[in-house]
Design a protein around this nucleic acid. Structure first.
Lengths: 223, 223
DNA sequence: ACCTGAACACCGTTCAAGT
DNA sequence: ACCTGAACACCGTTCAAGT
């Protein structure tokens, strides 16, 4: 009769894989990868760990499914752009923003090669690369370059967000710390890092990300 | 008197942080990230876990140090290229090959933002970006784009190598499995992935990697 | 078919005690 | 200053037993 009001109550409805994945996403969003545990998860779902294993093969399977659920939402969104290039920018920004909202996706994406999440992104980018008129035998390497770049930025942003979260820093303090560290480097060995330290805290991740996309898109024109 | 001949012997010389890092690298190379444990490490060093903690803050510190040791070797190598672009290619390939030889570096690099390993690469690429004549206010975003791309490819290759290792597959079997998976996708939803599946197993990671570098370098010319 | 929950093997980390 | 090794808290996973 009782549903799941207080902490020690058992659930009465049946579990489902989707429910488990949703709960996992909530946990990951709240407290990062460290927050997802079979203990925390079964507590939130008001069951035991064994029940979860009935629906899910293991933790890696669960993480992959959670990642795919997030990516599917943005990869399936309609594209408003009028040109293939505009659509590539749109797709890329979609992934960027998804990782910004769910930093754990950044690392989970990399860790599941060949999984659906990556194929979804690959497919949509590949279609635009085709539409750009890239030669058949270059479509793979061009698409792969775009994908690698997107995953690279995503992975770094995810790591930054996680580190800042662990250290209890907000973004500007985090950037400030790195900038301070770079300012102290040996001027003879690290002229570039030192020179850039001052402007570093003011940079915009999203703008820089798009600059990189545009560099690659520009390079395609020269092929 | 005895040194470290049989398994239960204790070491007689003092431990050092460098020794620990070297042993960690060996373990990581032999059996991936799962192979590095304070248990396996202290066994190999013929001590207890407490001794390691005297020289190393925690596992993350150890992984970062191991990663930096590898990256320092390639980042400090002299550059033979005659043009800034050739030097960028050389630097990028150096990182690519280092990750190929030590796949765990691919993920460790991402996980330690602002650490020395990344700064070393950033610095050397940044110097070449300067030499290319990129405007001051664009040097950061261009360098960052190159770095993100390199880390993105590295991270994926690392993940592929690890997955293949876990499943006991060699590279060609691994690629074959992905290709087979893509061939079975819905032709209406995944035309690109399906179309590319056949040529996928024959692709060359290193060549594709360089293609991406050249796309970005080409884009710089158009800025 | 689905869930329970105790048990297992293993992990990173700590720390009083030694030298 | 450096090392020992038992102990702690916690983790993913299993599985006999229940419904």
């Amino acid at each position: 009769m009782a549903k799941k009001i207080n902490g020690t109550q058992r659930r009465t409805e049946a579990l489902s894989r989707d429910q488990i994945v949703e709960a996992a996403i909530d946990l990951l969003d709240e407290s990062g990868e460290a927050g997802l545990t079979f203990q925390t998860l079964s507590k939130r779902l008001a069951t035991g760990p064994g029940a979860i294993y009935w629906h899910v093969a293991n933790k890696s399977d669960l993480l992959t499914a959670a990642c795919d659920a997030i990516v599917a939402r943005t990869a399936n969104a309609a594209l408003a752009g009028s040109t293939p290039k505009a659509k590539v920018r749109e797709l890329a920004l979609g992934v960027f923003d998804a990782i910004d909202a769910h930093p754990w996706v950044g690392s989970a994406l990399t860790r599941s090669p060949g999984q659906m999440a990556m194929v979804r992104i690959l497919e949509r980018i590949g279609q635009q690369v085709r539409a750009l008129g890239v030669r058949d035998d270059a479509q793979w390497s061009v698409t792969s370059a775009l994908l690698s770049y997107i995953l690279g930025v995503g992975g770094q942003n995810a790591a930054n967000a996680q580190l800042a979260h662990e250290q209890g820093l907000d973004r500007s303090n985090f950037l400030g710390e790195i900038s301070a560290m770079w300012s102290k480097l040996d001027p003879d060995e690290y002229p570039f890092a030192r020179g850039i330290a001052k402007q570093f805290p003011a940079h915009d991740d999203r703008t820089d990300f798009l600059t990189g996309i545009d560099l690659i898109l520009g390079g395609i024109d020269l092929m």
